[in-house]
Design a protein around this nucleic acid. Structure first.
Length: 568
RNA sequence: GCCCUGAUGGUGUAGUUCGGUCAAUCAUUACAGCCUCUCGAGUUGUAGACUCGGGUUCAAAUCCCGGUCGGGGCGCCA
């Protein structure tokens, strides 16, 4: 009926017919029904094909190919996090989609907050993410223009200076009443404005207000301040400018200067559109950009806001802004989340207008699929236990592929002896007489548990090995039981020899917050040994420790290598 | 308090503009099978949702009215 509109008039008759015929059909057996259907309409029997689609973001309103200008406009007052990446991604995505321009704009109009290092940090992280602005703008460089526009508003009497306190003004705005200053004319305002610029007023004593509408239901329209005195040292301009534009004024003018056609931003700004449009109208700076909104983007247990992270950094509850539990770009990079995964997740979540609380599993699952094919495999034994293998074949070389699905990546070769390290949890699961396989090597039957090596007469241990073996209190004995590959547990191992292993320390990230309370156990350190090849890996390499997880190499010292667990 | 905004499985999304193809998409998650010399990847299957109450209609996730709940704003922050 969706396609055959003409049938809709007959809908009553049709439903009657349907009801009449249903009992007849139901009386038939399933086979019978299938047979009949094949005769009448075989296409209905075909299974609906499930296609994996690549999700595309919705088209932009009024977008003209080649003319779209988007922006990512962070304030350089903190580290870039997932929320920033979200905005930057859309700006980049739509600029590319419509062959337009992506502007990176630093909104550095609060001298006390901004830092040059953050400007740099945003640039670098964008690059790392593969988001490429075509143009960069630093808002504070346009201060002369802002002053010019302020004078224009004052001359037209669209603005007035006001010395009311913040508290008083808050009350007045609540009551929808103007203050006495609003009655002053443009000559008085101009005098004050000049005094503001020459330093005759102190910080906090006076602001320039827009003549808005004190009775507007949208409270931001009630004579908002648009310029204020700020005497701090600006990171680029020092003390050159005593008076600074406030957010809405700066954005309204700057969007026009940059020729921005489409703005994506998070929904907390939606009430400001009216104000920014009004400012532009008063100054004749038309057209307005189109705004598309999306809601805040949260990761469950990992706050993104500076407000929440800063205390953690200061109290030392996290290692810094690049802590691997955080969703700062730095942190995710260190953890081993790759740019493509971040972008895929952002695209998948899309531009919903309701606040989202995505789970880390969405990020880790996406990341895992991307890095799986590119990550070499290594054996790692955490919390090791020593096992001595009786009758172990001597003088053999073990050759293991670096990747199970891609032999072109090469192999790692080791010469095993008869003493190995295996993971304690594997050991604990096994009983005496259980058979298991040292993966890629041979089968072993566990013969004795908890036997110190020096109590076994048949074991001869190199003097050289003794100090190394002392570190492991639990020992056990196994017996070689053939080469044949058969079902059953296959466990990872490394050779018990300081020269053929490397000590590894793994940082294991957990969830930072559980129901809004800080999780004291959110970071765990695990130690163990990996095969020697791991020692040669360069920092920033991502590999998989088999049956353990994907890890990113962080740093190394002569005797130890430090890695971060990205995820299982 | 006033003003925006939103509500689809545990989580994230598609579908809502313009009612019928929705017996609701894709993914994540959990479990199981296959495959695999990893507990990874791949693959197959199973589980799980239209916020509630009314209304309109032959037909409502979709339209209308009311309730509930969530998020945000009301700065000399951005």
């Amino acid at each position: 009926m969706a396609t055959h509109v003409e049938l809709r008039k007959l809908s009553k008759k049709i439903s009657t017919l349907i009801e009449e015929i249903i009992p007849t059909i139901n009386a038939l057996s399933v086979e019978e029904q299938q047979k009949r259907l094949t005769e009448i309409a075989p296409e209905l029997l075909a299974k609906k094909g499930h296609q994996k689609r690549i999700r595309e973001l919705p088209p932009l309103k009024d977008a003209v190919d080649g003319k779209v200008v988007t922006r990512y406009a962070p304030e350089p007052n903190g580290e870039m996090h997932l929320g920033h990446a979200y905005t930057a991604f859309f700006a980049d995505y739509y600029a590319k989609k419509y062959h337009g321009t992506f502007v990176l704009r630093f909104e550095d109009t609060n001298p006390k907050q901004e830092r040059v290092e953050y400007i740099d940090s945003h640039r670098q992280h964008l690059k790392w993410l593969g988001l490429a602005p075509n143009k960069e703008v630093i808002v504070s460089n346009d201060m002369p223009i802002f002053y010019e526009k302020a004078v224009e508003l004052i001359e037209k009497n669209y603005a007035y200076t006001c010395t009311c306190s913040v508290d008083k003004m808050r009350d007045l705005r609540g009551e929808m009443k103007s203050c006495d200053h609003s009655k002053r004319d443009s000559t008085d305002t101009m005098k004050d404005w000049k005094k503001m610029l020459t330093g005759d007023y102190k910080e906090g004593e006076i602001v320039l207000r827009l003549r808005g509408d004190m009775e507007n239901t949208n409270a931001v329209m009630r004579d908002p301040a648009i310029f204020a005195i700020r005497l701090g040292d600006h990171c680029i301009h020092g003390k050159k400018y005593p008076v600074w534009p406030l957010y809405d004024f700066a954005v309204a003018v700057e969007d026009n200067l940059c020729g921005i056609t489409h703005v994506g931003r998070s929904a907390e700004f939606d009430t400001r559109i009216e104000l920014q449009n009004k400012i532009r109208e008063l100054l004749g700076l038309i057209p307005h950009p189109d705004i598309f909104h999306y809601a805040r983007f949260n990761v469950l247990g990992s706050p993104a806001s500076k407000r929440k992270i800063k205390p953690l950094v200061e109290e030392g509850k996290v290692e810094g802004w690049d802590d691997i539990r955080l969703v700062t770009i730095k942190g995710m990079k260190r953890r081993g989340i790759v740019p493509e995964a971040i972008k895929q997740v952002i695209k998948e979540v899309g531009m919903t207008t309701q606040p989202t609380n995505i789970d880390w599993s969405l990020i880790t699952a996406t990341n895992r699929k991307i890095i799986d094919a590119a990550s070499n495999r290594y054996f790692f034994v955490s919390d090791p236990v020593v096992i001595y293998i009786e009758d172990a074949p001597e003088d053999r070389i073990c050759k293991v592929p670096l990747h199970p699905d891609d032999s072109t990546r090469g192999f790692r070769k080791v010469k095993p002896g008869c003493i190995f390290l295996i993971t304690k949890s594997d050991y604990e699961k096994m009983k005496v007489n259980d058979e298991f396989r040292l993966k890629d090597l041979y089968n072993v039957i566990l013969t004795k548990k908890k036997i110190p090596l020096n109590k076994i007469a048949s074991v001869k241990i190199d003097e050289e090995l003794k100090p190394f073996l002392k570190k492991f209190p639990i020992h056990c004995i196994g017996k070689y039981s053939g080469e044949e590959l058969k079902p059953g547990p296959k466990i990872q191992w490394v050779i018990a020899d300081a020269k053929q292993t490397v000590a590894v320390e793994v940082k294991v990230p957990g969830v930072l917050f559980i129901d809004d309370t800080f999780n004291e156990n959110s970071l765990k350190i695990e130690t163990g040994y990996a095969e020697a090849g791991v020692a040669k890996l360069k920092p920033d390499t991502i590999v998989q420790f088999e049956r353990y997880g994907f890890v990113r190499v962080e740093t190394k010292t002569k005797s130890k290598i430090f890695v971060n667990l990205a995820h299982k």
